[in-house]
């Protein structure tokens, strides 16, 4: 077996090790490269920035702990921005396994920004039904969530004053790691109840949501850790996402180097085979 052949059949655990090291070192020794803001992330930021004080901002944290590394920093940045703008924040989740995490993030950011539950924000928690919950909220918010996550009746909460259904929401952002997520919020929410919608998703899913972005079905998209880092840069509060960008840079570069190497070995093998073919003939 030639060197090239051996390299092409390399034990994948070696590749895993390379990726592991490329993630670990930049986290231990960060470089802090500048982050360029993309128009899709700016779309979400600018819209929140344009909302007058007291506007209703709905944040649906549609992800589970698996997507925490990418979507948790996005939630923190969005909540910080919304609270700083003194928007009325309605948070919820369509993923049952994300309920505890969603509660943690909103409680943490609200405490940090000095906001009060029921007055400045409400966490509605989770309600069964997936996409159907959006339809129910479009009809009657209080029917879909009669009580908030802490068991307080939603009717009469100062933060929900004047809000009856999704039509009264000024801006909604779904941070989705799958289904139900951004697409469900468009199809069953924005399309029917006419509110402006933005999205956030994992890096893997981002290219799939570009058609929605280009057609104006969502007005902005925060894609993966990169998107979160851009948002942190926009609001001027460095967090986990910016810290993770060096690691992501290194792993991307490692994958590129691996792909180039595998192609070099592949072409050298092909050349060898051709030469052997010629000599054989």
């Amino acid at each position: 077996m030639s060197f090239a052949e051996r390299m092409l059949k390399i034990d994948r655990r070696i590749i895993f090790l390379v990726i592991g090291l490329c993630t670990l070192f930049p986290l231990l020794y960060p470089v802090g490269l500048p982050i360029k803001i993309s128009p899709e992330v700016r779309g979400v930021y600018d819209y929140i920035e344009s909302l007058p004080e007291g506007s209703v901002f709905l944040l649906s944290l549609d992800f589970d702990p698996a997507s925490k590394p990418e979507l948790y920093p996005q939630s923190i940045s969005l909540l910080r921005h919304a609270f700083r703008k003194n928007l009325r924040v309605i948070a919820m989740t369509l993923w049952v396994s994300g309920t505890g995490m969603a509660d943690q993030v909103i409680t943490q950011v609200a405490r940090e920004m000095g906001k009060e539950s029921g007055k400045d924000y409400v966490f509605l928690g989770w309600s069964p039904g997936g996409s159907a919950v959006i339809i129910n909220m479009g009809q009657d918010l209080y029917g879909a969530f009669p009580a908030d996550y802490n068991g307080k009746p939603t009717k009469g909460l100062p933060v929900l004053q004047g809000i009856t259904n999704l039509r009264d929401v000024n801006y909604a952002v779904s941070l989705g790691a799958g289904n139900p997520g951004v697409e469900a919020w468009y199809v069953f929410g924005k399309d029917k109840y006419k509110f402006e919608l933005g999205g956030g998703c994992t890096g893997v899913m981002a290219p799939g949501l570009y058609p929605l972005l280009r057609s104006g079905q969502i007005n902005g998209l925060i894609g993966g850790l990169r998107g979160a880092a851009e948002y942190e840069t926009l609001i001027g509060q460095k967090g986990r996402a910016i810290a993770g960008m060096d690691a992501q840079s290194a792993t991307h570069l490692a994958i590129i180097v691996l792909v180039i190497m595998c192609n070099l070995f592949y072409f050298s093998l092909r050349k060898q085979a051709k030469q052997q073919g010629h000599s054989g003939a």
Partner: peptide, 24 residues
């Protein structure tokens, strides 16, 4: 949380190995 995080994190390693094996 850590178990699910681990499962999702494996994706990065698998992407690298799949890219190395198939991206020719």
């Amino acid at each position: 949380v850590p178990l699910q995080g681990t499962m999702f994190a494996i994706l990065a390693f698998f992407i690298a190995s799949a890219a190395y094996r198939s991206f020719r």
